[in-house]
Amino acid sequence: MPKFLIERNIPGAGKLSGEALQGISQKSCSVLRSLGPEIEWVESFVTDDKITCVYIAPNAEMIREHAQQGGFPADAVMEIRATISPATAQG
């Protein structure tokens, strides 16, 4: 199943409280349950003005539907084609 990187531009994201992040997470999980088992949230990274997420889904349209139902942005949805790390250099 394809893996996607989603950029969510949210000014001040890095200053959101733990309670606010918990609320966002709860809303996301609620929408995921309603969409069914084909879409999975792997993890998210919160920076100053953006939340960048990794999802597994059959297509980008399902990612956008999740964002629409959840009421949060999906400013960029990119399919991850490969993953590299320092271990990749070892061959």
Rank of each mutant, 00 (worst) to 15 (best):
I39V: 11
C53A: 11
N9F: 09
R64D: 11
R33P: 00
T52D: 02
S17I: 12
L5P: 03
R8K: 10
M62T: 10
C29I: 05
V77Q: 04
G71Q: 09
E40Y: 06
G18V: 10
K50H: 04
A74S: 07
C53F: 03
G18F: 09
I39Y: 08
S25Y: 12
E65L: 14
R81I: 14
Q69G: 01
G12C: 05
L35D: 01
I56L: 13
I39Q: 05
S17Q: 06
P73D: 06
S30P: 08
E79F: 02
L16T: 13
I51E: 10
N59P: 08
I84T: 12
E65D: 11
R8D: 07
S28W: 02
S25R: 13
T83L: 13
A74L: 04
A87Y: 10
Q26P: 03
I84E: 13
P2Q: 04
P11Y: 03
G36A: 01
T88C: 02
N9D: 08
A76F: 08
L16D: 01
M78G: 07
V31H: 00
I84L: 13
P11H: 06
R64F: 05
K3T: 09
M1T: 03
I24C: 12
E61Q: 08
V54D: 06
K50A: 11
E38Q: 11
G23E: 13
G71C: 08
F72C: 08
Q22A: 15
A60N: 00
T52L: 10
G18C: 02
A74C: 07
G70N: 01
S28Q: 12
P11F: 02
I24P: 06
A13E: 00
E43P: 01
E19Q: 12
G71P: 07
A57G: 07
S34T: 13
M62E: 08
F72M: 11
I56H: 14
I80W: 04
C53V: 05
P58Q: 02
S44Y: 06
A89Q: 11
T83A: 13
L5K: 05
R33I: 03
P73A: 08
A60P: 04
E61F: 01
V31Q: 00
I10W: 00
K50E: 07
Q26N: 09
G70M: 05
N9V: 11
Q68K: 15
Q68Y: 14
G70K: 00
V54S: 01
I63K: 00
G18S: 13
R8L: 06
R8N: 10
G71W: 04
P2M: 04
P73W: 00
Q90P: 06
A76T: 06
V46M: 00
Q68I: 14
K27E: 11
T88G: 07
L16Y: 13
K50W: 05
E65I: 12
K27T: 15
R81V: 14
P2S: 04
G12R: 01
S28T: 15
A57H: 04
E43Q: 12
T83M: 11
I24M: 15
G14K: 04
Q90H: 07
E61C: 03
G91N: 10
T88R: 06
P11S: 04
G70D: 14
I63M: 01
K15C: 09
E7N: 10
R8F: 03
I80L: 11
K15D: 13
A74Y: 02
A67M: 10
M1N: 07
V54L: 14
E79K: 09
G23M: 12
A76M: 06
H66L: 15
